[in-house]
Amino acid sequence: MTLKTRQLSEPFGRLCFRSAGSEGSDPLVMLHGVGMQSAAWEPQIDALSQKYTVYALDLPGHGESDPIAAGSQLPEFVDWFLAALDALNLDRVNLVGHSMGALIAGGFAVRYPNRVHRVALLNGVFRRDDQARNSVIARAKLIGAGDFDLETPLQRWFGDSPAERTARDKVAAWLAAVDIDGYATAYGAFAQGDAVYADRFDQITCPLLALTGADDPNSTPEMARAMAATANGQAVVVDNHRHMVNLTDPDTVNAALFQWLKTPTQERSPAHD
């Protein structure tokens, strides 16, 4: 599957993305995590494009997409995504995000509810405790200073099963290829982004899925359940998997996404007044 490009409105530059599926079917847009690229969605593109038109985007400064301004925070990434949808001529979409992509997707669902049919947040973070927040902010500062440690995230994200070793090799290659400045900007926004829209999740009225791995130490099952409860959505926890569950257990993730995509989209009342 070849990369395609679109020119975004100022100041966002070029968007690169992968797409597959039948034109005219329901659009499904996928946003990857920090250090990854649109190819990380390959198992989902292969399965979901059988029924939907799938667009997997390279985040700013990742893959072949142009970088966003240094120091940009989560609201600027949400602005970038709005520009991406407009450039793709997509009005209302089904939206899936992983990790940093989940932060963007959740923020977009809060700010632009009329552009989202459904939202799925995979391995998302939500209201970190003080210890976790201080730890991730410290890592962001190291990355911003040019200290890029490839091995540490791999150790957090993967176990030692054959499926995880295979996925780890792919992820290691993507991390090794990432632009360090784009990575640093995205990681800085990721570190600060878990609470930006959290207090407005009760305003999300479209069907929401929050999915994570039972053994993910940073995007925890408790976070997934809290997101789902706040937005009156559904939480799915995949046993024996960690942060890259879409690669290590794609069958379970794809089944959950297909089920989520069947959820009726009539507006529901927010979880809280």
Rank of each mutant, 00 (worst) to 15 (best):
S219C: 15
A195S: 15
A167E: 03
E164L: 09
G193R: 04
K170L: 12
L209G: 00
A214C: 03
L211Q: 01
F201I: 05
G193P: 10
A195D: 15
V178D: 13
G193E: 08
A173L: 07
L175R: 10
Y187A: 08
I204D: 02
R200P: 01
A173P: 08
G213N: 02
I180R: 14
A173C: 02
D194N: 07
A210H: 03
L209F: 01
L208W: 02
S219I: 10
R165C: 00
A167H: 05
D169Y: 00
Y197H: 08
S219A: 15
D215E: 15
P207A: 04
P221L: 12
D216H: 12
Q203Y: 03
E164Q: 14
L211H: 01
D202M: 06
G188T: 07
I180H: 14
S219M: 10
Y187K: 06
D216E: 11
R168T: 03
R168D: 04
T185D: 07
C206E: 02
P217V: 13
V171F: 07
G193W: 06
V196K: 06
G213T: 04
D169N: 09
A172R: 15
Y187R: 06
A186P: 08
S219N: 13
A195N: 12
Q192K: 10
D199C: 06
A177S: 13
D216P: 12
P221I: 12
A172N: 09
G188F: 09
D169G: 10
V171S: 07
V171L: 08
D202I: 00
G193N: 07
A210E: 02
P207Y: 03
G182Y: 01
A167K: 03
L175T: 06
I204S: 03
A177N: 12
T185P: 09
A195P: 07
W174M: 14
T166R: 12
N218M: 15
Q192A: 12
L211G: 00
P217D: 13
N218G: 15
T212F: 01
T220R: 14
R168Q: 13
C206P: 00
Y197M: 08
A176S: 15
D202Y: 11
D216V: 12
Q192F: 02
